[in-house]
């Protein structure tokens, strides 16, 4: 066995990493198809406020992040549907306010130790056993929901209005999609970090779109690229001692460049 797996924290990092490598690009496909991928970044920043809140209240920061991300996801969706704010304004507003709240709360909680850097950029050493109990079941839940509603979510991603006219419960499905996005963001917080989650949800998808010859195949490629980025990123991070989130995102970027080059090669 590779010596990397003799470390408990690395085994936990891989378990969490494989979960997010699967789930993040999967949700990302539906968000990108809907041209809504920026919501991942907004929820990630908002979830940082939840991390700080969690620390202040002495609960697991991931639980705090989950609570705040879910509330913000539903508020954004409500604003979008009600046309109170255009989608991009709401997203930009919550993105910066999330970070602002996080910084203020962290400042207030002087007694509490939060490794802000690890929440911003991810770290392989921070996944606790308790975190795994949050990350893996929630990841399974996201996968199960997408498995059950795959064709409906695909239709919604293709054309919201037509999906509505065909009688699909689009309000419920749209809410479900942002909730799943919020959950995915929180799952990825430990390993990839709040500033880089958006990249893991978008770059493998962008890479997959280069050569995907159908929606279903593009999703398969995206998940394969996501998993490959996380696994390779964790190895690199361990042996080269680089930041996990950054390394994962750079590898996904490399896969994107290879995909674009592959597309250019005449068949």
């Amino acid at each position: 066995m590779l010596d990397i797996f003799t470390y408990g924290f690395m085994v936990r990092a891989f378990l969490a990493g494989i979960t997010i490598g699967l789930v993040a690009p999967l949700i990302g496909c539906f968000l990108v198809a809907k041209r809504y991928s920026i919501i991942a970044d907004t929820l990630a920043h908002a979830s940082l406020a939840g991390v700080a809140l969690g620390a202040l209240l002495f609960i697991n920061p991931l639980i705090g992040a989950l609570g705040v991300a879910l509330v913000i996801a539903l508020v954004i969706e409500r604003l979008r549907v009600g046309r109170i704010l255009t989608g991009d304004v709401a997203l930009a507003m919550f993105l910066s306010s999330g970070l602002a709240v996080a910084i203020v709360l962290i400042g207030l909680s002087k007694n509490v130790q939060i490794d802000l850097f690890s929440y911003l950029f991810g770290s392989i050493t921070t996944v606790s056993r308790q975190d795994l109990w949050i990350i893996m079941p929630l990841g399974g839940l996201v996968l199960a929901f997408i498995g059950l509603f795959y064709k409906e979510l695909a239709y919604l991603a293709f054309d919201d209005e037509s999906a509505r006219v065909s009688g699909l419960p689009t309000i419920f499905l749209n809410q479900a999609l942002v909730i799943l996005a919020a959950v995915t963001v929180v799952l990825s917080l430990r390993i990839v970090g709040g500033l880089l989650i958006g990249a893991l949800m978008v770059i493998p998808v962008a890479a997959a779109m280069q050569n995907g010859r159908s929606f279903s195949r593009t999703i398969l490629y995206a998940v394969a690229f996501g998993l490959a980025s996380v696994v390779a990123g964790l190895f690199a991070s361990f042996y080269l001692n680089t930041a996990a989130g950054g390394t994962i995102v750079l590898i996904s970027l490399l896969l994107f460049v290879i995909s674009v080059a592959w597309k250019k090669i005449p068949a």
Binding site: V32, F149, K151, S162, S166, P169, M209, R213
Partner: peptide, 22 residues
């Protein structure tokens, strides 16, 4: 510049309402 949907995939969307949820 949208997602790569095939012709058959798009037309099949038209059957979803008829098939019912799940």
């Amino acid at each position: 510049a949208r997602f790569p949907f095939t012709v058959a995939e798009v037309v099949a969307f038209g059957r979803i309402g008829r098939a019912g949820l799940l």
